[in-house]
Write a protein that binds this DNA or RNA. Structure first.
Length: 270
DNA sequence: CTCCGATCCTGATGGC
DNA sequence: TGCCATCAGGATCGGA
């Protein structure tokens, strides 16, 4: 679930409460995530001050003096600020308690997320091949056009490839392509540079709008304070199979692209 | 390189 | 009710 807007929403929600504070306790209730949570995590982090909290793509980077804890929320993960004594929920796998009384919990029913530790995050295998951030100056229509030139996959596959741009998942790929007026099935090497200019801009504006709304909640995601994301009400095509397009009133279609459900408007997207 | 399918896991939903 | 198949927001891996 969590794509860039949900991860950014989480970052903004938790950062003021924990950044600059010292880890008092790390409790690992279940270490069997996508990869095993390192046993050494509690020992390394306890007593350390969280110096910085950043996002790279869909990863959260918690910087401590000894190194960086990487957190990825996978399909169903979320981080929530809680009372440290609140009863554990079924899929609460980790809890970090800080000296100021703040407590952070990772809940992840499907356990596709991960919590890892590294002394050198940007050379870590999971981060080193990530492409540009959508809001960075290196991400633009020219970059997309160049990336598309040597491939033949559908444009939706292209923009969900994190080597091309980080943070765009299934929902926002569908929404951005609708906003750009591009058919998601179109081969990526058969789209003009001008249309990629528009697509690059629209990817940014769609993600920005979703961040302002606090992300999208379909099932598991919630903001750090427990509220849902309100972009769900602003979705133009995602999950709206057979419903009238909000722009031209033609029925939205659902197709499978790369084994993922995809939604588009045949009237607005060519 | 690029591309495709299998894979990890739980839970919600709908058909019978 | 129960059982079963199908489907989910991600992304890595292995092999063609």
């Amino acid at each position: 679930m969590p794509e860039l807007p949900e991860v950014e929403t989480t970052l903004r929600g938790i950062k003021p409460w924990i950044c600059g504070h010292i880890v008092q306790q790390v409790q690992i209730h279940n270490r069997h995530l996508r990869w095993p949570v390192p046993d050494s995590l509690a020992k390394i982090l306890t007593g350390q001050r969280l110096q910085e909290l950043r996002r790279r793509g869909k990863y959260l980077l918690f910087d401590f003096p000894p190194g960086t804890m990487l957190v990825h929320l996978g399909m169903s993960g979320s981080l929530r600020l809680t009372e440290s004594t609140a009863p554990l929920r079924k899929h609460d796998h980790l809890q970090w308690t800080f000296e100021n009384g703040s407590s952070l919990r990772l809940e992840d029913p499907r356990r596709f997320g991960c919590v890892l530790f590294t002394t050198d995050p940007f050379s870590h295998p999971l981060l080193k091949s990530l492409g540009p951030e959508p809001f960075s100056s290196t991400f633009n229509g020219n970059w997309l056009y160049q990336q598309a030139a040597r491939r033949r996959v559908a444009v939706k596959i292209l923009i969900m490839d994190h080597r091309v741009v980080t943070g765009v998942g299934n929902i926002y790929a569908c929404e951005a392509l609708f906003n750009a007026g591009i058919d998601p099935r179109r081969p990526c090497n058969r789209i003009s540079e001008q249309r990629y200019q528009r697509l690059a801009m629209v990817i940014c504006s769609t993600l920005e709008q979703a961040i302002r709304a606090g992300g999208t909640t379909l099932r598991d995601f919630h903001q750090a304070d427990g509220r849902p994301g309100y972009f769900t009400q602003l979705l133009q095509v995602y999950g709206r199979n057979q419903q009238a397009c909000l722009c031209c009133e033609q029925p939205i279609r659902q197709v499978v692209i790369g084994q993922r459900s995809s939604y588009y408007c045949p009237g607005c997207q060519k």
